[in-house]
Write a protein that binds this DNA or RNA. Structure first.
Lengths: 207, 207
DNA sequence: TTCGTTTTGTATCGTTTGGTGTAAAACGCT
DNA sequence: AGCGTTTTACACCAAACGATACAAAACGAA
């Protein structure tokens, strides 16, 4: 019961006790940058609290522990810096969907003030903490599943050739996207990623 | 002077003092698996020494420290599990080179007894230790440069269309390869990766 | 056997890790 | 003002981290 209330940003609920001196969403954004740049294990609690500008007990009271904080960060990452992905899925034609996904991936590389690469790739690809590893893997899987469903719909609508396999194409697109994330983390420029995307599109079935 | 002698497996050198009870190469292979599966920070010294079956002081005497051990592991990884890459570069035609690179990447996914994915991607993509991060990035860059040089040669030999850009193609191929490594770490099967490789090859310039 | 040298095993170093106990501070309510 | 409640700041915890000191053990040479 109490747990269900946590996180409800109810405007009407009367405030009880000393009010928070920080905005949880702002703190989450700051934590996101640390996890993004350093990975789950590379981000220490000292790193996190310093960046979030809160004390340890405040972090634990507001977000549970490091694992749970990471989970909330992943959610915020998907609904924030990765929100363009959902919009890309809404493009009219399958080819446009893929183009916008490649485009969005490339644009993330030039986003000022954010670490290069993708949190879902760098966060905990290889990690001693199995829970964190599974969390990012699950989110990567979910993204691919969403694209697959979109391409399956496209095929039903005659937007893809009959011999095209939506699942394989989705797997291919997400493979390129994740490769781009690795390249970006390694210092690849937006222009380089853009050229990669153009070449990758040549593999798209004609029709 | 003394430093130059370290690592020389001289058969003639007279042995001085108590002989090693372990094979450094075998120990490196065991350390490789730990770094490969858990990443640089996820691999603790206790994990490493347990897997290598040596004590801490033996590790430090033979390999310096954790960072230097990681560097030696990367070298051994490239000359071992990644040796197929160099052979692929020796294929007669540019298209064969790329085919073999994709094939090799896919085969690594089904290699029994080795972690899924690529050490150069999982080792320290995002990592609090900047040195480790740079080490893997440098090796990734070197691999891409080798492929680029091979494709440049191919173009000089008329093995690639005049409008093809070897650097862009190399960047594309390595992007797909690294994406495949991420997918593999996430549980993708050899068959799935093979289909991705087939689609990726459709982007290859005809000629 | 004794000496010089190197490795081995144990025990430990100081630091950092993720995580809390506690009391003062800051609010709404009466 | 005083009470109940929640957050804050400071201190601290046990455990794990990377890295060593030290003495016994195991060799070749003398």
């Amino acid at each position: 019961m109490i747990y269900l209330l946590i996180g409800m940003k109810s405007e009407t609920a009367a405030q009880l006790g000393r009010p928070r001196a920080f905005d949880p969403d702002v703190a989450l954004d700051r934590a996101m940058h640390v996890f993004w740049a350093k990975g789950y294990e590379g981000a220490s609690l000292s790193n996190l609290t310093r960046a979030m500008r809160i004390n340890r007990p405040s972090l634990y009271a507001a977000f549970g522990n490091k694992e749970q904080l990471f989970g909330k960060v992943l959610d915020r990452y998907i609904s924030g810096p990765l929100a363009w992905f959902g919009k890309a899925l809404a493009a009219p034609k399958a080819r446009n969907v893929v183009e916008q996904i490649f485009l969005g991936t490339g644009q993330m590389a030039e986003e000022a003030g954010t670490p290069a690469g993708c949190l879902l790739v760098q966060g905990a690809l290889a990690c001693g903490n199995a829970s964190a590893r599974k969390e990012v893997a699950a989110r990567r899987t979910a993204a691919e599943a969403a694209l697959r469903r979109r391409l399956q719909r496209a095929k039903r609508e005659g937007d893809l050739p009959k011999n095209a396999d939506p699942a394989e194409l989705a797997h291919y697109v997400m493979t390129v996207v994740r490769g781009m994330a690795v390249q970006s983390a390694g210092g690849a420029s937006r222009a380089q990623l853009h050229r990669v995307a153009q070449i990758a599109l040549r593999a798209w079935p004609k029709g």
